[in-house]
Computed example of a mutant assay.
Amino acid sequence: MIVVDIFKVVNGRFVEHWDVMQEEIVAEKTLSGNSMFPIK
């Protein structure tokens, strides 16, 4: 599971919040053949 939280801070205060949850798709199942995150 991929989870991302993004916060916007203005003058030291949280003013916005976004979050995303998604199952990771393996490279073999994508149309491009690329993974969601490159592994180095």
Rank of each mutant, 00 (worst) to 15 (best):
N34R: 12
V26S: 14
L31Q: 03
I25H: 02
M21W: 02
Q22R: 11
I6V: 14
M36R: 13
E28H: 08
A27P: 15
M36S: 08
I39C: 12
K29Q: 14
I25N: 01
K8R: 13
I2S: 04
V20Y: 14
P38H: 13
V10L: 06
D5S: 09
N11P: 01
E24W: 04
K29C: 09
Q22K: 07
A27Y: 11
I39L: 15
M1L: 07
D5E: 08
E16M: 03
H17P: 04
T30N: 03
D19N: 09
E28C: 07
V4K: 10
S32W: 03
M1W: 02
S35H: 12
L31V: 05
V10K: 07
E28R: 11
N34K: 15
F37V: 11
K29M: 13
D19Y: 10
V15S: 02
E16W: 08
G12E: 06
M36K: 10
V15Y: 03
K40P: 11
G12F: 05
S32V: 03
K40A: 12
F37S: 08
A27D: 13
M21G: 01
L31T: 05
K40Q: 08
W18A: 03
M36I: 10
V9S: 05
E23S: 10
S35E: 11
R13G: 05
V9N: 04
N11G: 06
Q22I: 06
I39F: 14
W18P: 00
A27R: 13
V10Q: 05
S35C: 06
Q22S: 07
P38D: 15
E16Y: 08
I6A: 14
S32H: 02
Q22H: 00
V10R: 02
P38N: 14
F14L: 05
F14K: 06
E23D: 10
F14Q: 09
S32D: 09
M36N: 14
F37Y: 11
V20M: 07
F14V: 06
V9K: 12
M21F: 02
M1Y: 00
V3N: 08
D5F: 04
V15D: 02
P38I: 13
G12A: 06
K29L: 08
F14G: 04
E28Q: 15
M36W: 10
W18Q: 04
A27T: 09
L31M: 07
V26F: 13
F37A: 15
M1A: 10
V26N: 13
N34D: 15
M36Y: 11
H17D: 02
T30F: 14
M1E: 05
L31C: 01
G12M: 06
D5Q: 07
Q22T: 11
K8Q: 12
E23M: 04
V4L: 09
V10C: 01
K8F: 11
D5V: 07
M21L: 05
W18N: 01
